[in-house]
Design a protein around this nucleic acid. Structure first.
Lengths: 104, 104
DNA sequence: TTGACATGCAACCATTTGGTTGCCTATTAT
DNA sequence: ATAATAGGCAACCAAATGGTTGCATGTCAA
């Protein structure tokens, strides 16, 4: 879980996920296209995404194809985001109440 | 948006959000309770959470009360997580299809 | 009014991070 | 066979990160 949050913390990596979302199964060189970064830097990002299980790879001859794995993202949505959504609407009014309590 | 992702990348900070979720409106010292970290370290984490707009503070005399703001978390769910959830079910079968295409 | 308490500020430190360059290996095409 | 292509490995670097300690300030209570 921590790996996923850490992997998502970087804008370059999120952009890589975006590109895989747009077209799945790209090679390293394809993912380097139009990016102001060396191939090696992209490789490092992809390794981090793989370790977080956000990207799966498949060798195909001398090419390495990268596939998006949406499961961890979904899990963060389920296990983490939803928890904080409950009570969103009441947050402000609660704040007000608690303040009034303290002033009594 | 980037600030929010960066703020969520650290386990200590996520734990602070958890604690505020359990009980909203805690002071700095309350948040330091039972944590293996100096008060100053906690302060730094809270500043990062404030800058990401995940935590709002209110001075009350010499105390500083910390309140969770769930809106940015919700936004990440809406604008980011949901995008990747569409197509989750078809991901594996798509992968298979694309592989077969490449082999033709 | 003076001491205790809650927080703030700044300097410093080690480690991690995001990036580079240079070279090596494996596969494909001519 | 050999050159071009796709990717891998390792050393190195600057900046960001997560933490510390020491001291200062503001507020409350006796």
């Amino acid at each position: 879980m921590d790996d996923v949050f850490k992997a998502l913390a970087d804008a370059s990596r999120r952009s890589l996920l975006d590109r895989l979302h747009a077209r799945n199964g790209q090679t390293l060189n394809e993912l380097c296209d139009g990016i102001a970064m060396t191939r090696q830097a992209v490789t490092k990002h992809l390794v981090i995404l793989e370790q977080a299980n956000l990207v799966t790879t498949l060798r195909h001859g001398r090419e390495k194809l990268h596939y998006l794995n949406p499961v961890p993202i979904h899990q963060i949505g389920e296990r983490w985001i939803r928890k904080f959504e409950r009570g969103k609407l009441t947050a402000l009014s609660e704040l007000k109440k608690q303040l009034e309590k303290r002033d009594e």
